[in-house]
Amino acid sequence: MGKIIVVTSGKGGVGKTTTSAAFASGLALRGHQTVVIDFDVGLRNLDLVMGCERRVVYDFVNVINGEGNLNQALIKDKRIESLFILPASQTRNKEALTIKGVARILEALKKRFEYIICDSPAGIEHGAIMAMYFSDEALIVTNPEVSSVRDSDRIIGMLSSKTRRAVQNLPPVKEHLLLTRYIPKRVNSGDMLSVQDVQDILAIPLLGVIPESKSVLQASNAGIPITLDKKSDAGQAYLNVVARFLGEDPPPREKKGFLTRWFGK
């Protein structure tokens, strides 16, 4: 049975969709059957970042409403064998997502995939709750700034109270902190929160730190998941995140200078 992982943050623009695309393709690159779902109904972006927007015929909401079947809606990635995308609808709104409908689709996906990545919309309303409701694990994407950390804290609270696992008294959703758009220079000069600062406030295990990088914007504009850019430091960092998520201890390699600077203080 597959594992459902929500990528969430509360705040917008912190890198949820970039992370969803990078993380899903990272898992698929390691040979895992992976599907990434866009829960941002009405503001669909994931297909752009994944470079498949011109192949969307049926979407998530169509499948929920029974207007098309799951196989018609799933888009197979052209670059990575075991990666699929389930795009959001652009013409509907988030109310189209019902608990029953989402449950049915996730159940079907769990039989077929090892990892189901749910790209959450920003906010704490219906769309975000639908994205997190059935999750087993959560990536909390946070920028090293006060408002983002505050919103992440709110989302972590909701993960432990508003999800299926919380409601049914099951073991809680496993939380992972992912710090993105990190600029070590600005941390050292004191105008950005450090990894330690963020961890002090959120008090959940850190899965990784992704440096701010020009290559992220270039890749997302080109519709390429950043993990496929071998030269990008952010791509490398995401690959390390995937390795750590899979329980490995990835070698820091030449990035050691960076890492000691991030974690050393």
């Binding site: 704490i124 505050r150 804290d153 709110r154 609270g157 909701m158 432990s160 406030i201 008090a203």
Partner: peptide, 25 residues
């Protein structure tokens, strides 16, 4: 458990003991 932003914990009868952090909000 930590008490996160947006959460509210009430002890109507007596003391309240929290072993973890109370977040902003």
């Amino acid at each position: 458990q930590p008490i996160r932003s947006g959460q509210q914990v009430v002890s109507l009868q007596g003391d309240l003991v929290v072993l973890s952090t109370i977040s902003h909000g």
